[in-house]
Design a binder for these strands. Structure first.
Length: 194
DNA sequence: TACGTGATCACG
DNA sequence: GTGATCACGTAA
């Protein structure tokens, strides 16, 4: 079943990022259902330099300041859509970046969207999984309680000992905050990004 | 390692 | 208005 708003609106974004490992991200875009098990996440908070919200609200990051439970989707490097889950209360701008999935449903749709013939590493990276699942800025600000994009708990068991933390990727500009161990990966998964 | 690609943001 | 920058991916 879908995660409740109360799951997202808790205050500890790092804990939420860890708990999202093993949950299932689902989209139904243009009537096409696709989904995957989350195997890699990163936490971001307005309190640290790695976060878009660190310097306050702007046109791009304003949905991060909404109450938890909505999608924050933005364009990176002019090409890649990045999918985040907004957490915490209104004005406490925090979010979890979804970085990799293990495909579950709608593999044929994903193959077509990615224009590839095999599923190999088709959702192993934040820019790739959004394309495979049909996520773009049309979903920015959408509720995760809606009918187009949501996250489910399907009772997939993930032992805490199978989750590893490490520094986040691609945020050298964040100085000391780049060292925070706020990236979570499922140990042994073939689907974690490189 | 190099760079495509275009929105965004902090300047004026 | 303008220019530097960027939570990536792929090719080489």
């Amino acid at each position: 079943m879908k995660l409740a708003q109360s799951f997202y609106q808790r205050q500890n974004v790092v804990l939420i990022a860890k708990e999202l490992i093993g949950k299932v991200l689902v989209t139904s875009v243009n009537g096409l259902l696709t989904s995957g098990v989350i195997v890699e996440t990163e936490a971001y908070s307005y309190k640290e330099r790695g976060c878009h919200a660190y310097r306050g609200i702007t046109e791009r990051n304003k949905v991060m300041f909404e109450p938890g439970g909505v999608a924050y989707v933005y364009l990176c490097y002019g090409i890649h859509q990045m999918m985040n889950v907004v957490t915490n209360k209104e004005e406490k701008a925090e979010a979890v970046l979804i970085r990799a999935l293990e495909p579950l449903e709608g593999l044929d749709v994903m193959l077509r969207r990615m224009a590839v013939k095999t599923e190999k590493r088709i959702t192993s990276g934040p820019g790739k999984l959004t394309k495979a699942l049909g996520i773009d800025r049309n979903q920015n600000g959408q509720s995760l309680g809606g009918s187009e994009i949501w996250i489910e708990n399907r009772n997939i068991k993930v032992a805490k000992s199978r989750i590893m933390s490490s520094p986040r990727i691609g945020i050298d500009y964040a100085g000391e905050d780049a060292k925070l161990p706020w990236r979570f990966t499922l140990i042994g998964s073939e689907w974690v990004s490189k």
